[in-house]
């Protein structure tokens, strides 16, 4: 196993002892196949037990370890050291308040997620005894990619609108609203429209597409948001321009 000495520069901030954030540099002896998370774990175990960050699965599915790595939002468990030269700078995800070190406060996302009603509002009620709703593979495919969101927050960090307009509901929550709107079993689009079709909903998105570029699960939030914009526009025309405001 070949080893390499990696310089990692980590943003540190402890609200109890620091007046402002600062960088701390660690020299870490790393194995070639490691990811940035392995380097942080090595620091925590052998150099500095006070370093704080979130992580769990180490396989890019729990969504805990989002952070800025050399200025880009990444999952630390999927940021391979082999892709970086020189000093690697690690910071907490942009656009979120820092709780401590690399740990951010994500209350804003958590409350926005609940607001878009990200759960099935059935088009027709069906008792469990009647079995499953039928859904063809083609119908499944229409929304499947939007189910893959791991709530890692990378898209919020990348989104310039969210940085400017904190009220913006943002890519992940809107994608999850779209995920249910696009599900053949669901009839809740109107209920979600209050949040999704509002100014702070899809209309705040300026279609930069940064969210889709950084998404580790290829959810493509930008496409979800555009589809919602189109659907909402069609709704608006139907309501205002069609005779009798037919739906």
């Amino acid at each position: 196993m070949s080893e390499r000495l990696v310089e990692v520069e980590v943003l540190r901030y402890n609200p109890e002892t620091d007046s402002e954030p600062h960088f701390q540099r660690y020299s870490v002896s790393c194995e070639e196949e490691w990811v940035v998370l392995d380097a942080l774990n090595h620091v925590k175990e052998t150099i500095d037990p006070t370093l704080s960050y979130r992580w769990s699965c180490h396989m890019a599915v729990c969504g805990s370890c989002g952070m800025m790595i050399n200025g880009e939002p990444k999952l630390a468990c999927k940021a391979f050291l082999r892709n970086y030269e020189g000093v690697i700078r690690v910071e907490p995800l942009a656009h979120f308040p820092i709780e401590r070190d690399l740990v951010t406060v994500i209350d804003d996302f958590v409350s926005k997620l609940a607001r878009v009603k990200p759960y099935l509002i059935p088009k027709e009620d069906k008792p469990l005894s009647a079995g499953e709703y039928r859904q063809t593979p083609a119908q499944l495919k229409k929304y499947k990619q939007y189910t893959l969101c791991i709530n890692c927050m990378l898209c919020y960090s990348a989104c310039p609108e969210y940085g400017l307009i904190p009220k913006y509901i943002g890519p992940a929550a809107l994608s999850l609203a779209h995920r249910y709107n696009a599900d053949s079993r669901d009839g809740g689009r109107e209920e979600r429209a209050q949040e999704v079709a509002a100014t702070e909903g899809v209309w705040d998105c300026s279609f930069v597409g940064a969210c889709s570029e950084v998404c580790p699960e290829h959810v493509d939030p930008a496409s979800a948001i555009q589809q919602e914009k189109i659907a909402n526009m069609v709704d608006w025309y139907k309501e205002h321009l069609m005779p009798g405001g037919a739906k």
Partner: peptide, 11 residues
């Protein structure tokens, strides 16, 4: 399934 789980499907 009724809560929306995206189970894989038969044709």
């Amino acid at each position: 399934e009724h809560w929306g789980c995206p189970w894989s499907r038969e044709p």
